[in-house]
């Protein structure tokens, strides 16, 4: 299963809601404002690094670029993907659930 999260974890709880329920081994794509969850040096970095050990976590690069985060340090274990790869993920990982 592929979980989609699109809100900043500093503003909304959708990432937290997803992580609480997504079984180990499932995939999570951070896009739109959720890309802020993929950054190093935030108060959430430790928790996210931990989450990346139990889940496959991806971050959408065009949403990083749009936000001036092109060269930003992404957490270890979080994989940057473009839109083509986003499409591949939806095909490869089974049912898609959006956490809204």
């Amino acid at each position: 299963m592929l979980h989609l999260v699109n809100k900043s974890p500093f503003e909304r709880n959708t990432l937290e809601a997803c992580l609480k329920r997504a079984p180990k081994g499932s995939s999570i794509l951070l896009y739109e404002d959720a890309v802020y969850a993929a950054l190093q040096g935030t108060t959430l970095s430790a928790a996210m690094t931990q989450a990346a050990k139990t889940h496959d976590i991806y971050v959408l690069t065009p949403d990083l670029t749009a936000r001036g985060l092109d060269g930003a340090s992404i957490l270890e274990g979080v994989r940057p993907v473009d839109y083509d790869r986003f499409v591949d993920l939806t095909a490869d990982k089974g049912t898609v659930q959006s956490w809204l």
Binding site: M1, T95, L100
Partner: peptide
Amino acid sequence: ESMDVVLS
């Protein structure tokens, strides 16, 4: 995880 379609 067992669903085919999840609408939220």
